[in-house]
């Protein structure tokens, strides 16, 4: 457990989260959310929660990004906020 690495990845997670809710393109928001989930799974792997991290890497970064992309593909990509 290296707390410097932990702090750096925590900062990345927070920036990815802020980016995912501020960007004005829904496809970009979906991809940034995938990056957020992947960073989060790294953070949990650092904390020793290997099972949770594996689940998040396959579910959050994999399948839910595909769900977001397909929902955006079926609706609209533009947004006002």
């Amino acid at each position: 457990m290296i707390w410097q690495l932990d702090l750096i990845i925590l900062t990345f997670v927070i920036f990815c989260g802020i980016g995912a809710i501020t960007i004005k393109d829904l496809l970009g928001a979906a991809i940034l959310f995938g990056a957020y989930s992947f960073m989060m799974s790294l953070l949990w792997a650092i904390m020793g929660a290997v099972d949770v991290s594996f689940t998040e890497a396959s579910v959050g970064a994999g399948v839910s990004t595909v769900f977001f992309v397909s929902a955006v593909f079926r609706t609209t990509r533009r947004t006002k906020d």
């Binding site: 995912a20 809710i21 829904l26 998040e56 929902a71 609706t75 906020d81």
Partner: peptide, 18 residues
């Protein structure tokens, strides 16, 4: 609370859960 787009709200819900 603030975002008006439904997909943005869903992304916010997922961030809350994580």
């Amino acid at each position: 609370i603030v975002k008006k787009n439904l997909v943005k709200k869903i992304i916010g819900m997922s961030i809350f859960q994580t």
